[in-house]
Computed example of a mutant assay.
Amino acid sequence: MPFLIVALLIGLVVSITFAVTLGSVEIQPSTVWKIALSHLPLVHPWIEADWSKGEQTIIWEIRFPRILLGAVVGAGLSVVGVAIQSLVRNSLADPYILGVSSGASTGATLVILFGAFSMYGQYALSFGAFTGSLVSILLVFALSRIGGQNSTVRLLMAGIAISAILSAITSLIIFSAPNEHGIRSVLFWMSGSLAGGKWEYLTIPTLIVAICLIVLLAQYRSLNALLLGEEAAGTLGINTVQFRKQLLVITALLTGVIVSISGAIGFVGLMMPHIVRVIVGSDHRRVLPVSALFGAIFLIWADVIARLAFAPEELPIGIITALCGGPFFIWLMLRSSYSFGGSGR
């Protein structure tokens, strides 16, 4: 396990380095880290500034914050995928598939086009997305449990229904908006993009992802017990009702913050946890950090493809993740078992 973590950390650094170098302007990997290290007060005097002003702007102001944002968003989506799959005890669960991202998009669209939640100032977009994601996950979870315990089919049907309703509401909001430029921005943002990555946008997502990851790691025994079922977890001393409420808030918070900064990026939270469980097993003490690192690396390279595939035009990153995640989801559905407890089909 320590070897795997170290290998993934090295892979993350290598991915960041080469992702920054790739683009219309060719840049050497050594230049990337010289410029990055030159911004550290203790290291700055020892770095010889042998790069151009253009390279400084491209690396530090444009590419570096975008790549780091991709790493944070990828890690966050993977962590929220682990949380929501544990919450519903099903490996098919994902914020995008279950409509949680649609709820976050609805809340964020209200903020962008109509200035909703303006009383929260610069945090209005995050608050709007969080509110939308929390409402949607509560609706999906409640709807899937009507008439008894939630099953995979009921859960997916509830997610599809709520997602369709919220998507329709979002479309209605966009149709009603008077600002044509704002509409174009929202439509591109809804497909997922890291184009708006700036240093000032990194602080809140990074803190939220780190805090939620630490909280979930501290509760890894409860997450493991939850996979056995509510009754089994209760016999192990877990207050399942309270713990599920915590997971609901964490899931909504992570999804809301991530969607507010990058738009709706699907399937990362589905693919990464499932792949990781095949490699390291179901113990959340391993699954959580490895999923975060896998997700960070995956989204960095997905963004590279989105930037370069049709350069100088840029694809929404959600298209790339959907092209990877769609076939993966179909394969997962066709497997003989896709629920943790064995009774979710």
Rank of each mutant, 00 (worst) to 15 (best):
A158I: 01
K34C: 04
L68A: 00
L22P: 10
I300A: 04
V100K: 05
I137M: 14
Q246M: 15
M119R: 06
G11M: 02
V257F: 10
A158W: 04
L138I: 12
A210P: 09
T203Y: 14
L254C: 10
S163M: 13
I319C: 02
I112M: 15
L270V: 00
E313Q: 14
L334R: 15
G281M: 01
Y120L: 15
I330T: 06
M271R: 06
L9P: 01
W189R: 06
V257L: 11
Q122S: 13
A83V: 14
W199K: 06
H181R: 12
G74V: 01
G344T: 00
V100P: 00
P205D: 01
I165H: 02
T240E: 06
G121I: 05
S101W: 07
L227F: 05
F114A: 08
G196L: 04
L270Y: 03
I47P: 01
R145T: 01
H181T: 14
A218K: 14
V278M: 15
I47V: 15
G115K: 05
S163P: 07
I261K: 15
G325N: 11
S282F: 07
A252Y: 09
S222M: 13
S191V: 12
I250A: 12
G132Q: 10
S343I: 09
L227I: 04
T170M: 06
H284N: 15
F340W: 11
A322F: 08
G121Y: 06
A75W: 00
N150F: 13
A116K: 00
Q246F: 15
F127Y: 10
D303R: 09
A71F: 02
G115A: 06
L113Y: 07
G103W: 11
S52L: 00
F294M: 09
P45W: 07
L110A: 02
W331E: 05
P95H: 06
F18I: 09
W51P: 04
L134W: 11
I320F: 06
V32F: 04
L202D: 04
I250Y: 12
V100E: 10
G266D: 08
V73H: 02
V304G: 07
S136V: 09
Y120R: 02
V6F: 12
G281E: 05
V249Q: 03
I173S: 02
S163R: 10
A49F: 13
K34R: 14
A264F: 02
G341I: 05
M272H: 00
D94T: 06
I204D: 00
G269R: 03
F141C: 04
S193Q: 12
G269V: 01
G159N: 07
V100F: 11
S151A: 03
F130L: 12
G107Q: 12
A232P: 00
G76F: 03
G107M: 14
R89H: 07
A19D: 10
K198P: 08
Q56T: 13
S151N: 09
Q85P: 09
R286T: 08
A322V: 10
L253V: 08
P205R: 01
V304L: 09
F340K: 08
L202W: 00
L22F: 10
S222W: 09
L98E: 10
I208A: 13
S343F: 13
Q28S: 13
E55V: 00
G81S: 02
L270A: 02
L172R: 03
